[in-house]
Design a binder for these strands. Sequence first.
DNA 1: ATTATTCATCGTTGATTAACGATGGAATGT
DNA 2: ACATTCCATCGTTAATCAACGATGAATAAT
Lengths: 107, 107
Amino acid sequence: MKPADISINDKSIQRSAEIAKALGHPARIAILKILAQRTTCFCGDITEILPLAQSTVSQHLKALKTAGLITGTVEGVKTCYCLNPEGIRELQSVLSELSTELIKTCC
Amino acid sequence: MKPADISINDKSIQRSAEIAKALGHPARIAILKILAQRTTCFCGDITEILPLAQSTVSQHLKALKTAGLITGTVEGVKTCYCLNPEGIRELQSVLSELSTELIKTCC
DNA sequence: ATTATTCATCGTTGATTAACGATGGAATGT
DNA sequence: ACATTCCATCGTTAATCAACGATGAATAAT
């Protein structure tokens, strides 16, 4: 098997980096875990769990949503955030693929 | 099982975020893949593969090294970079753990 | 109609990142 | 001894991020 070209502009690399970037802050990982803990959807009392201002939490939620890892649906005055199954599956596949690829060879 | 406390200061969350952050740039993922492709150790002609200045590549290498994902050993005038098996294994375990945890529940 | 609640967005600040060229130390080759 | 090569580091610039408080829109509650 020939060594595949590796380019910064590779779509899959781009996407992996995007997902990893979204995970690249403790608050955002914590948020994902919180969302995973509640079977039911969840809204903004994340603010009560994390030691962060409401606006900061909202910002992190936005980042996660932009990366496709969560969804947010307005329910009256509240907003219900949930893990986005599709995004999480993508996270799973993309990252496991990457780590298998890396772990296969070492010096 | 009670819902575990989730804290931004959790060591494991911190470490996961650190690793994810290191992966959070296309150039760094590309570098890891390049290192994985060469069975033998590798040094700085990454610069020839990626469309980035030598100093920029060096910066990214430093970031990966700081995160514990690669090692760099000076060999004469060159520096040989390799995947750090320990770090890569950690990457693997940390991220797969996280994604299983997330994928388990969805709304 | 007024008030209270929830949260997204704005504006701000300081910190960090990404990129580059330039410099210079260390080893190798002549 | 000198030139060359490799690369880490410095200094710089522009951009992005992380955090906050303030504002304001939308809905729900009185």
